[in-house]
Amino acid sequence: MDLIGSVVVAGLTTGALYALATLGLSLVWGALGMLNMAHGAMLTLGGYSAFVIVTRLGLPMPLGVLASCVTGAAAGAVIYLSVARPLLARAPETFETTIMIATFGVAVALENAILLVFGGQPFGQPVQIAGTLGAGGFTLPNQNLLIMVTAVLLMLAIAAFLKQTKGGRAIRAVAQNREAAELLGVPSGRVYLLALALSGGLAGICGLLVSSITQLSPTLGADPMLKAFIMCVVAGLGSIPGGIVASFGLALIESFVQYQFGARWGFPVLLGIVILVLIVRPSGLFGRNQVRRL
């Protein structure tokens, strides 16, 4: 019984992390039609920022959390201003392709910059809470609980932001029909900047959380980024709630498969599910059947 409990805890924890990574990725994908290949690198940056603040500079943990969020948001803003905006201005019709290649370049550059500064050896993430909660045979490490609670709170906050605030409504409007939003006075450039900064801030915190149960390394963000991409495809583009459901569902399945058949079967099974979903529903489980264009 306690074994099943641990498998569920592991599944929900990775699910929460996948969901956070997916939320950030699909926010920008939906709003700009931009697949940000540097999303994983923003996660890595966030993890290392907290490490620098807490371990290297000896500052308190909350500052480390703040640093990971701010660094991620800044990276998102810089990527918009220096890469996405010029590409969008010059050739909007090929943007969806060029931005993938350009941000892939950004990802490689960032990963190697981190390798250069910190070296390839892994570090431990100092921002975490030790100890476990337990009752009967069931134990729940505090850090896993923290990850789940943080992820859920962040998702609720983003949902409220998108639904209730002017900036959030503008992001949704631009995502659904950019020209119509502009006709109503929404400056789409500023909305894109906002979406990328928001996505970067989420990525920064997500990277911090991921590194807290693994390790800091220059390729830290690669796996969550890949999983987030898979979740977006399974859920269908543009469906943020769908992405979150897919994240938890697939993470639980992955966790059970790893427990039952061994860790190496987790990823192949995940990919198998993706292939099945795409055969049965090419636009994803929650996707809209429509062509998106910028």
């Binding site: 949704r172 409007a173 659904q176 029909n177 020209e179 119509a180 939003a181 502009e182 006709l183 109503l184 006075g185 929404v186 400056p187 789409s188």
Partner: peptide, 21 residues
């Protein structure tokens, strides 16, 4: 367009609504 918006209420061809809102 976002600067011209305060002068004109443009009701575009095909409505261009925000379909998920």
């Amino acid at each position: 367009p976002s600067s011209v918006a305060r002068h004109f209420a443009h009701v575009p061809q095909g409505d261009m609504l925000f379909m998920q809102m």
